[in-house]
């Protein structure tokens, strides 16, 4: 009996840690989101969020940039992962590692490098804020999309693809009817790895657009530095709801797949 407890005991510090520093802060955020500056219960922040055009703009722009970045990353990473994982086209595993290595270099430094390179060729935050931000986003999140796609592509059932060809599918049909459905879990998890952080990113949009593009991250940061805790908390809550909805959406696709998605291992 004593032994049994001793085996479970190590979970206690971690559980306490999770309660104190994960659950409690979120509860506090919810508290601030539904109170006013004097600490009384109110829907002030909620009404402000949905009537204030700048805040709705932030939501809209974040969703839009998140969507396009995810789309671009998938369009580039999908064929890349396919090619990397196909033994007929590539049998050099080192190339895969080469795509991961830049992730170990500090991402602020990489963003700085990108900013300098872009301003050298004439794309700077002052003249092309959206182009610069999008390039920076794709540059930063591409490796995160490659990995989950690559690990799904490794498990593609090649004989199924051959069968599709034998049964008279042209390459396009094989691609749409066979390769995409087979790799759907990878696509969804890669999209998730890309969409969420893009929406809430701070450094990339702030530096590459010279502060012209406000995403959720920038907006929460701003309201916090202006001591508008209630407004900032409500924005965090909206973001939290979006995170939760995206999670539910992802669950539907990856329920039957293996638990070790590419995201967790890096």
């Amino acid at each position: 009996m004593r032994y049994k407890f001793a085996r479970k005991a190590p979970v206690i510090p971690y559980a306490v840690f999770l309660i104190l520093f994960v659950i409690l802060p979120i509860l506090i955020i919810i508290y601030y989101a539904f109170t006013d500056a004097q600490g009384y219960f109110s829907f002030e922040s909620l009404v402000e969020f949905f009537t204030n055009t700048t805040k709705l703009d932030v939501l809209f722009v974040s969703l839009l940039i998140g969507f396009f970045n995810t789309l671009l990353c998938l369009i580039i990473a999908f064929p890349l992962a396919y090619v990397l994982a196909n033994p007929k086209l590539n049998n050099n595993y080192v190339l895969v590692i080469l795509f991961v290595v830049p992730m170990w270099i500090n991402f602020v430094l990489r963003t700085g490098a990108m900013k300098e390179m872009l301003s050298w060729i004439g794309i700077n935050g002052g003249t092309h804020p959206i182009t610069a931000t999008m390039i920076g986003m794709v540059y930063n999140y591409l490796p995160f999309t490659i990995l989950p796609l690559y690990s799904t592509m490794l498990k593609l059932d090649r004989s199924q693809i051959e069968a599709a060809k034998d049964l008279g599918c042209n390459p396009l049909q094989t691609f749409i009817k066979n390769i995409i459905p087979q790799s759907l879990p990878g696509i969804v998890s890669a999209g998730m790895m890309c969409f969420m952080p893009t929406m809430s990113s701070y450094v990339i949009s702030d530096t590459l657009s010279d502060g012209r593009i406000m995403l959720f991250g920038n907006s929460i940061y701003l309201s916090f530095s202006q001591l508008d805790w209630n407004g900032g908390s409500f924005m965090s809550l909206v973001m939290l709801v979006i995170v939760f909805l995206t999670m539910l959406f992802t669950r539907r696709f990856s329920r039957n797949t293996d638990p070790e998605r590419g995201g967790a291992s890096w």
Partner: peptide, 17 residues
């Protein structure tokens, strides 16, 4: 929760606490 959560929410909520 922290795995899928946005970093900025983790940061903001901890700081407020």
């Amino acid at each position: 929760i922290p795995v899928v959560n946005a970093e900025v929410i983790i940061a903001m909520s901890l700081t407020v606490m």
